[in-house]
């Protein structure tokens, strides 16, 4: 015998599946925002299966032709072996010390030789140009290298938006300086804030990019969240992290590393196996991710990007302009 019992919930009170899922997503997004960013990225990014890690997927980006043939360095190596002195001088410091760092809200000021000073929020930077994945080699001046699938867009797009004047010969990148959240800055290993720079034509080269992510996810704090510079034919230290200011100048910027060791670190810092460094051999490099018996590999001029960038330096003495 079947007993029919009338439901005591009237149909109009039932939450539709769509609404239910929207709410769940909102709650998820709110949870993720507590861990990492405030909810302004909603739509652009979403938390990964393991929301507790704070890792967020970037929802849409295009694959690109750059470096598809290279074997990627494992995610764990890219995110646990970092030179990021704002969070400590040991390679393993940044992943630990940057856990509480909040890359959002975030604004970047545009200053100097521009039509007009401006500010741009990180959520608008995500929308400035179509995001694409580019697999680049990264060669550190210390003689090791990685292959990293960055997500971002050409710096040229940001420069176009910034509208520099004809006086702009160089671009200066200034990173965040705040020793309350960046414990490494309490030691004056470098002259804070971290300053890097490029010549205008280097900055406009299609290879130069602003990265906001890697491995399909929002840039981890230890890799320079929320946005960093990537210049694949130069040594890794040129890639300023956590950028808060971009200034266009007429004269060559004095970078943090130039101040720290003028005979060791030059403005150009192009990867060059024939120009030796006082400490490290530059003719070969160790690819991170190999085992104990993986041999070193030969370092290539301009880190293998000579075809795209060598013309920038014709007629220049690379031994002097190191």
């Amino acid at each position: 015998m079947l007993i029919h019992k009338k439901s005591d919930v009237i149909p109009s009170e039932i939450t539709s599946k769509e609404n239910f899922e929207n709410r769940r997503n909102l709650i998820k997004a709110a949870g993720a925002s507590l861990l990492t960013a405030s909810g302004i990225f909603t739509g652009l990014v979403s938390s990964t299966a393991n929301a507790a890690s704070g890792r967020q997927k970037i929802n849409s980006y295009a694959k690109s032709k750059y470096g598809a043939e290279e074997k990627l360095t494992p995610y764990d190596d890219i995110t646990n072996y970092n030179n990021y002195y704002e969070f400590g001088t040991s390679k393993t410091d940044p992943s630990i010390e940057s856990r509480l760092f909040k890359p959002s809200p975030w604004a970047v000021s545009i200053e100097g030789a521009v039509k007009k000073n401006k500010q741009i929020g990180i959520e608008d930077i995500f929308k400035l140009a179509p995001l694409e994945e580019r697999i680049y080699r990264m060669r550190c001046v210390e003689g090791w290298s990685m292959v990293i699938p960055w997500i971002g867009f050409p710096l040229a797009k940001l420069i176009q938006w910034a509208e520099p004047t004809a006086n702009a010969k160089y671009v200066e990148f200034i990173s965040l300086s705040d020793d309350l959240i960046m414990p490494g800055q309490r030691i004056h290993a470098l002259d804070w804030p971290y300053v890097e720079g490029l010549r205008m034509d280097e900055a406009m080269n299609p290879l130069t990019m602003i990265a906001v992510g890697l491995y399909g996810e929002v840039l981890p704090n230890q890799n320079g969240a929320p946005m960093r510079l990537v210049v694949p034919w130069k040594y890794g230290f040129k890639g300023a992290k956590a950028i808060v200011k971009i200034r266009f100048t007429e004269t060559m910027p004095k970078t943090s590393w130039m101040k720290a060791g003028p005979n060791e670190y030059g403005f150009y810092a192009n990867v060059n196996p024939t120009v030796d460094h006082p400490r490290w051999t530059q003719s070969s490099e160790r690819r991170i991710g190999g085992g104990l018996f993986t041999p070193r590999i030969k370092t290539q001029i301009f880190n293998g990007y000579a075809e795209q960038v060598a013309q920038l330096y014709t007629g220049m003495d690379l031994n002097k302009n190191f």
């Binding site: 646990n80 072996y81 085992g291």
Partner: peptide
């Protein structure tokens, strides 16, 4: 031994 085992040793 970390990301760079040879350097570690």
């Amino acid at each position: 031994l970390g990301a760079n085992p040879i350097e570690f040793i």
